[in-house]
Design a protein around this nucleic acid. Structure first.
Lengths: 124, 124
DNA sequence: CGGGATCCTCCCTGATACTG
DNA sequence: CAGTATCAGGGAGGATCCCG
């Protein structure tokens, strides 16, 4: 999609970001990736760890991540059903860029908040 | 928000990402930042460049970015009104992490697509 | 030109209940 | 335990009109 002819900005930055954010920006996806970054997890473990996610959204996000090859879903045919989720190498690779983004966030959130308060005070 | 006690994953990655994605992940924000990364732009320039954005959403996203201190809005009191948007240093800083994320996306989108097709074929 | 205000419409999401 | 199915509400986003 987005067959544009922007000769100015077609160098590096523009194309893939919106698309990739639609892949991993699904509100819970990041937290799932982070949680799985600490090791494989079962469904209920994720449900408890992320805390705030509904069963439905957790399922949908896991399906989506699995569909895009970012996590694996392994079913162990135990008496109590057991399903384990884990990151794929593809997802491991994305953790570094995300970590850098998180570092920027950590540095900048105070400034962002300050700007926001200033704006809100100015506009009321 | 999210006053959690996850001793395992509270090291680096988890906290700020969802929050920062709510700041710059607003579907058009990234493209605005990218377009402004090539230089200051006027409202209609952005509207034409991004192509697909509605006037309303462009306005809202610009307001939001301005509110968070990521862009500046300069009004030139010309006969035809002229408003120029430009990145702040805060936004310049985020372009590097975003660029790395974009690089990962460029590398990985083929694999992501392949995984998706494989999944769709498997599940139909 | 650069928006603000309004309306309207989905889709996303949460809650709940059911299943293997 | 690990989901699926269904229903209902709210908010994101588009279209349109209007104004400085």
């Amino acid at each position: 999609m987005s067959q544009r002819n922007t000769a100015v900005t077609d160098q590096v930055t523009d194309c893939p970001l919106p698309e990739v954010l639609r892949l991993i920006g699904d509100k819970w996806c990041i937290q799932i990736l982070v949680e799985l970054g600490a090791g494989p997890r079962r469904f209920t473990q994720l449900e408890r760890a992320i805390e705030g996610v509904s069963r439905r959204m957790l399922t949908l996000n896991l399906r989506n991540l699995e569909r895009n090859g970012l996590i694996t879903r392994t079913v162990y045919p135990d008496a109590p059903p057991s399903v384990e989720y884990a990151l794929t190498p593809l997802a491991e690779d994305v953790r570094e860029p995300l970590e850098l983004l998180a570092q920027w966030a950590r540095r900048s959130i105070p400034a962002l908040m300050a700007a926001r308060h200033a704006y809100d005070a100015r506009v009321q």
